[in-house]
């Protein structure tokens, strides 16, 4: 059996080999684009579901919708390794400090999706739900709101695409966005929701 010609190693490197290697293997870009590309290709969410929206979040991770296609498959078990918090479900006053603690434990840059009606604004508990936080943005800063009750899995995927678009705009040297966001929860209200 003869070795196919194409796989035969050349006796010596052809002329101009160095230039070819440069052309095929080196890519010129800028740091922001490169880091943002890496970052948005692997947006790892925190494993964390509060109510029925979490069922749809699990559907997104299953084969039919397959979040793995977009690099967001590894749901992390610790906030230290997560880039994205998907708040999937009703946030009660009892749970709110825990959500806030998890958010604080995530490393910058971090992003948050508020998934579903309860998380966005209290949902059906808006008026008479004594125990439900009327929107998780009263507790942590939210980047993308995904509407629905619960949202379709495709809607959550779309939310993750929106996060990826936000990530495209990150600047390595510009930390103001992150620092500004961190100040949202002070216990004394914020610009959007002043204290009573």
């Amino acid at each position: 059996m003869s070795t196919p010609e194409l796989l035969t190693p050349p006796a010596s490197p052809p002329a101009g080999h160095g230039d070819l290697a440069l052309k095929d293997n080196v890519l010129v870009t800028n740091v922001d684009d490169f880091i943002n590309w890496c970052r948005r290709s692997a947006v790892w969410p925190l494993t964390f579901g509060l109510a029925c929206c979490a069922i749809e979040m699990m559907a997104v991770a299953s084969t039919k919708f397959d979040i793995d296609r977009f690099g967001s498959g590894p749901f992390r078990g610790t906030p230290r390794q997560a880039d994205l918090m998907i708040v999937a479900g009703t946030v009660t006053h009892k749970m709110a400090p825990r959500v806030q603690r998890l958010w604080e434990q995530m490393a910058e840059p971090k992003y948050c999706i508020a998934m579903g009606a309860c998380t966005i604004g209290g949902g059906p508990y808006w008026k008479y739900g004594y125990h439900v936080v009327k929107g998780v943005d009263l507790v942590i800063p939210v980047d993308v709101h995904v509407v629905g009750c619960p949202p379709r899995p495709e809607a959550l995927l779309e939310g993750i695409f929106k996060i990826r678009e936000l990530m495209k705009r990150e600047k390595l040297l510009d930390r103001t966005r992150s620092y500004a966001r961190r100040a949202t929860y002070t216990g004394e209200g914020n610009a959007a929701h002043p204290a009573p």
């Binding site: 507790v139 002070t186 209200g189």
Partner: peptide, 8 residues
């Protein structure tokens, strides 16, 4: 409740 508004 704990600094989170509940009367929106």
């Amino acid at each position: 409740y704990h600094g989170i508004r509940n009367d929106l």
